[in-house]
């Protein structure tokens, strides 16, 4: 989905010319990704939405300078991150309605109907559980790369970690999912052989 970063760039170009339609398109394109990212830091749905909305407000206010941004994805995610961290630091007085950890972690990645992948719903549950058992940072990395299609370098910049960490964390996550699968497939193929 890295072609998306091209799409984002061309939208920003139009926004910098004051095109409200492009602005709406960008909101629809990125809101959910940025919202989920904010949620991973702030753990409050209402605040997460507020933060992303704030970033979009700022985007419109400084629209004339948008074409100077080299890596729009990194810029937007970093803005969300900084704002969320600011919020955690400054606004402790606010009453934040926290989600229970399980609640917000679940919403980071939602896998669809198991029949779409030709696997049983039981196995799907196991896969979802494996993803949910990943350490928080690892889960965020998994989401940014898988769902948002960001590159290791982009994720590294956004999260202020090394690309190697991104690579390792992701490799661990994929392995965790992969290791749930083996028995199932192997049994199937041996059954076929017996019949023959």
């Amino acid at each position: 989905m890295r072609k998306q970063s091209c799409h984002i760039k061309s939208l920003l170009e139009r926004i910098s010319d004051g095109d409200p339609d492009a602005y709406k398109q960008l909101y629809y394109l990125l809101f959910n990704s940025l919202y989920k990212f904010a949620l991973s830091i702030i753990q409050s749905r209402q605040q997460a939405e507020e933060i992303v909305s704030d970033v979009f407000v700022k985007l419109w206010m400084v629209r004339q300078s948008l074409t100077g941004i080299k890596n729009p994805s990194v810029y937007l995610y970093t803005s969300v991150r900084n704002r969320a961290l600011d919020y955690l630091r400054k606004d402790r007085s606010h009453t934040i309605v926290h989600l229970s950890p399980q609640d917000w972690e679940d919403s980071l990645i939602e896998l669809k109907d198991p029949s779409d992948y030709c696997i049983s719903s039981d196995l799907m549950k196991k896969i979802n559980a494996a993803i949910n058992q990943l350490p928080p940072q690892s889960k965020v990395i998994f989401r940014l790369v898988k769902e948002d299609g960001l590159s290791y370098k982009q994720v590294a910049k956004i999260m202020e970690i090394s690309p190697l960490t991104v690579r390792n964390q992701l490799s661990i996550a994929v392995r965790k999912i992969g290791e749930i699968l083996p028995g199932y497939i192997y049994e199937k193929s041996t059954v076929g052989k017996e019949k023959a």
Binding site: Y117, C118, E147, I177, G178, L181, I185
Partner: peptide, 13 residues
């Protein structure tokens, strides 16, 4: 296994 993972991976929420 790789196919199943790829299927899950490429399916976006």
């Amino acid at each position: 296994q790789v196919d199943v993972i790829a299927g899950i991976w490429n399916e976006k929420t």
